[in-house]
Amino acid sequence: MIVLHYTGMENAEAALERLCDPEVEVSAHYMIAEDGRIWQMVDEAARAWHAGAGEWRGITDVNSRSIGIELVNRGDHPFAEPQMAALEALMRGIMARWAIAPEDVIGHSDMAPARKCDPGPRFDWARLAREGLALALPEAARSEPDAEAFRSAARGFGFPDVADDLLLQAVRLRFRPWGRGDLAPEDMRLAAAMAQVCSSSL
Rank of each mutant, 00 (worst) to 15 (best):
A46H: 08
A14M: 12
I2N: 07
E70M: 15
V171W: 10
R189T: 09
F175A: 11
R92D: 06
G179W: 01
L71C: 12
I69W: 03
P145Q: 13
L71D: 01
R151K: 15
P160L: 10
A89Y: 00
E55N: 14
C117M: 10
M1P: 13
F159P: 00
R97T: 05
R142E: 15
A195S: 08
Y30G: 07
I106Q: 11
D165R: 14
P121Y: 06
N63F: 03
H50G: 15
D187P: 04
L87F: 09
I67A: 06
D76E: 14
H77Q: 14
E34V: 00
A112W: 02
A184Q: 15
A33W: 00
G107M: 08
R174E: 12
W178K: 11
L133G: 13
H29Y: 04
E81H: 02
I32E: 05
S66V: 05
E34D: 09
E17Q: 11
V171R: 07
A192V: 01
H29F: 03
H5P: 03
D104R: 06
W49G: 04
L168M: 08
S109Y: 06
D187G: 13
D164F: 12
A33G: 10
A96P: 03
L128K: 02
G156W: 07
A184L: 04
H5Q: 07
V105F: 05
S143H: 04
I59E: 15
N73I: 00
D182K: 14
A191D: 06
A99N: 14
M1L: 12
A51D: 13
V62W: 04
P121R: 15
G93A: 06
G181H: 10
L168A: 09
R174V: 04
W49A: 14
R18C: 03
P82R: 08
A141R: 10
H29E: 11
F157M: 10
L168K: 06
A184T: 08
H108G: 02
A101G: 10
H5I: 04
C117W: 05
A193I: 09
A101T: 15
P119D: 09
W56R: 07
G179V: 03
A136N: 04
E148Y: 02
L4G: 04
P82L: 07
P121A: 15
D165V: 14
A136Q: 11
N63W: 03
G54T: 08
E88T: 04
M9E: 13
A12I: 02
G179T: 05
G68E: 05
A48G: 09
D61H: 11
E10M: 07
G158W: 11
A126V: 12
A191Q: 09
K116F: 03
L173F: 13
W56Y: 11
R74N: 04
D35P: 00
L128E: 08
M84K: 01
S199E: 15
R180S: 15
G181P: 10
D43K: 13
H108K: 07
A163Y: 05
A51K: 01
D104T: 02
R172W: 12
D104A: 10
M188A: 11
M1K: 05
G158L: 14
D118E: 14
G8V: 00
Q40E: 12
I69S: 03
R115S: 13
S64R: 12
D182C: 06
I100F: 07
